[in-house]
Simulated assay, not measured.
Amino acid sequence: MRAAVLEEHGEPLSVQEVEYPEPTADQVVVETEACGICRSDWHAWRGDWEWMGISPSPGQILGHEPTGVVADVGADVETLSEGDRVTVPFHLGDGTCPYCQNGHSNVCETSMPLGFIGAAPGAFAEAFPVREADFNVTKLPDGVNFAEMAALGCRFMTAYHGLTDRAGLRPGDTVAIHGCGGVGLSAVHIADALGAVPIAVDVQEAKLDRARELGAAATINGAEVDDVPGEVYAANDGNGADVAIDALGIEETCQNSVRSLDRTGTHVQIGLSEGDTGGNLSVPVDQMTLQEIDFHGSYGMPLVRYDELFTLIERGTLQPEKIIGERLSLEDAPETLASMDDYETIGIPVITEF
């Protein structure tokens, strides 16, 4: 089968023939119908996350936002059959640890990040295996198509989990979203659809234009103002935001996010840092203490929350397809990934041809 393979960090992926996967007893093999290209793939491709123990070796197949059709079923798998339309979380859990058992599979003790380590080859390929398939693989409702499910795969669901579960978003809340890549635009759409008031911040007008199309009540070009938090206050009648998201993961956006909050506000960290930070960003702790600001992380979404998300999509309340940027072929993956050096992608690029 064909796959886009990492040969060296920072060098173009190589589209080549590799062996078709054979499932072990607990696995299924999924033939890929669509897979998003995410900034997390870019981080892995650059070799950013050695401090986390996630630095893919040569030969790794990236790709962690997949959806497809079950093609082969391991001997011990009980709930899945060939031909099932399915999706897979990027954080593959074991199904047995206390976190998996208590509804927090996204932070499983032995999580295997799909497409980032050799034991979990990714979905920039015609097919990929999935461990503990009875636990990790979810069947798609008829009303959810492959491309929009790939758009859900990491960024959309992380934004949804961050807003609804971590921040406790309520209708009428003001949400300042710092960074309008795929996850930031997903947050804009979700906040608007759930009755909140999104304020979008970025340094590229094209991305702010897209944010306005997705429901942003106000936009701020961070390259054109000296005081981003002050502009958030100005856009919100002199008040800080109730919720703020750092959707990029650099010190400037993290600090701007916290400083744009009103008293008792909630910051949600979604963007992960680049390699030279070692995973450390400074935050204004005095402000957080004196104003009782909450700081939360959001990483993927627990499997038990999928049904709620599917219901909102089937009703038309949420429309992840709106976040899709380009639809690509597998051959486009190397160039598209490299273009993220300059933040050139708008929305979520999705591979739909393998």
Rank of each mutant, 00 (worst) to 15 (best):
His9Glu: 01
Gly10Arg: 01
Val15Met: 04
Glu22Ala: 06
Pro23Ala: 04
Asp26Met: 05
Val30Gln: 00
Trp42Lys: 12
Arg46Gly: 03
Glu50Thr: 07
Trp51Ala: 06
Ser55His: 05
Pro58Phe: 05
Pro58Gly: 00
Gln60His: 07
Asp76Val: 13
Leu92Glu: 10
Cys97His: 14
Pro113Ala: 00
Pro113Trp: 03
Gly115Asn: 00
Ile117Val: 13
Pro121Trp: 06
Ala125Glu: 02
Ala127Ile: 02
Arg131Met: 02
Asn136Trp: 06
Leu140Met: 07
Asp142Gln: 00
Asp142Gly: 03
Cys154Lys: 09
Arg166Tyr: 07
Gly168Gln: 14
Gly168Ser: 01
Gly172Glu: 03
Val188Glu: 00
Ile190His: 11
Ile190Arg: 05
Ala196Met: 01
Val201Met: 01
Val203Gln: 11
Glu205Cys: 03
Lys207Val: 08
Ala211Pro: 07
Ala217Pro: 01
Thr219Glu: 00
Ala235Leu: 10
Ala235Gly: 02
Ala235Asn: 12
Asp242Thr: 09
Gly249Phe: 15
Gln255Arg: 15
Asn256Ala: 10
Ser257Ile: 11
Arg259Ala: 13
Asp262Thr: 14
Asp262Arg: 15
Gly271Gln: 12
Gly279Val: 07
Pro284Gln: 09
Val285Phe: 13
Tyr306Thr: 12
Leu309Val: 15
Ile313Thr: 02
Ile323Glu: 15
Asp332Ser: 12
Asp341Pro: 10
Tyr343Met: 06
Gly347Arg: 14
Ile348Val: 11
